[in-house]
């Protein structure tokens, strides 16, 4: 099974569960192949958890789910050292983070202290507890969900944490036809339980390596940097895209090219991914009279920037 076939089968597998959301599935796969972490932000009940679930189920690797609540502590997710009487020593009990795919459900419901315990794991794929560094498994991907509609008892993610997510996705409501298909299913079974794994961890690692080898033409690199630079000089934005953001866009564009069965990037790849990848990394100017984190607004600003940057011929 070559790369394009395996990617296709992965997408098809998830599509059995998530109806009519081909683009969202594609983005999730891109995120996986770019070694990134995914933040899904939408109202409750549109399949955020189901998407994460079905992605994890489609892969033959470990999956843990953490329900983030306000009393969750860092040790609850990272793990804890416990004194072992037999051995007369402290023993590290790994937390749920020691899995290939971690679903951090309702991530904005926990305290910033706990949220930031994810930082090292997400950026370095390792965890330090009691002066010991524990590497995490590969592939490692955090899929976090959050609900933007509720504000009571939530802790908005700090900028540094947001920047560590490769992309922020919205799922959106399905069309009536697709919704009907969902209703048609027998309610006894969770849809994600039906599907079988199609790829294993090694497959994913290979695909990730392949995605890195996708070539990006020099002028496309310039195009990408021009977009990033434009966010830094836009007066609607008080905070532009960081270098990490530029790197994320580059990696994601390569992964998208692989997903679309190409060995090279196109301007499309960059332009299409830019709103998803950049919108949570910028901050709107407060003086513009809008709330800082408004999703639509930042995406629109990024879209305007894309419409002003010329594509290399």
């Amino acid at each position: 099974m070559n790369s394009s076939q395996s990617i296709k089968s992965l997408q098809d597998n998830i599509a059995q569960v998530i109806k009519g959301k081909a683009r969202v599935i594609e983005m999730a796969v891109v995120c996986l192949l770019a070694r990134g972490h995914l933040l899904i932000e939408d109202v409750p009940g549109v399949g955020k958890t189901t998407l994460a679930h079905s992605l994890a189920r489609s892969l033959d690797c470990s999956f843990k789910r953490i329900q983030f609540t306000s009393d969750l502590l860092p040790s609850d997710i990272v793990g804890i050292s416990v004194f072992n009487r037999q051995k007369q020593a402290f023993e590290f009990m790994p937390g749920p983070l020691f899995a290939n795919i971690v679903l951090a459900d309702e991530i904005n419901r926990t305290t910033p202290k706990t949220q930031s315990s994810l930082l090292e794991a997400m950026s370095e794929a390792q965890i330090s507890v009691d002066n010991h560094t524990h590497p995490l498994r590969q592939p490692f991907m955090v899929i976090a969900t959050q609900n933007p509609a509720e504000y009571h008892g939530t802790f908005p993610l700090p900028e540094s944490q947001l920047d560590r997510f490769l992309m922020r996705l919205r799922i959106g409501y399905p069309t009536p036809d697709e919704e009907k298909k969902v209703l048609d299913r027998p309610p006894s079974l969770h849809p994600a339980d039906e599907i079988q794994p199609v790829l294993n961890a090694q497959h994913i690692v290979d695909l990730q390596a392949q995605a890195e080898k996708v070539q990006m033409e020099d002028s496309l690199m310039d195009y990408l940097l021009a977009i990033v630079l434009a966010t830094r000089h836009n007066n609607l934005l008080s905070l532009g895209v960081s270098t990490r953001g530029a790197l994320a866009l580059c990696k994601a564009a390569k992964a998208l090219a692989l997903v679309r069965d190409r060995t090279y990037c196109l301007p499309e790849d960059i332009k299409e991914l830019a709103p998803t990848i950049l919108s949570h990394r910028v901050m709107l100017n407060r003086s513009q009279g809008v709330r800082t984190k408004s999703f639509e607004h930042t995406e629109r600003v990024i879209q305007d920037i894309l419409d002003s940057v010329p594509v290399p011929v």
Binding site: L266, P267, E268, K271, L306, D307, S308, V309, P310, V311
Partner: peptide
Amino acid sequence: KPASATPLE
């Protein structure tokens, strides 16, 4: 073709 349009667009 607008300058900001990609080939496929």
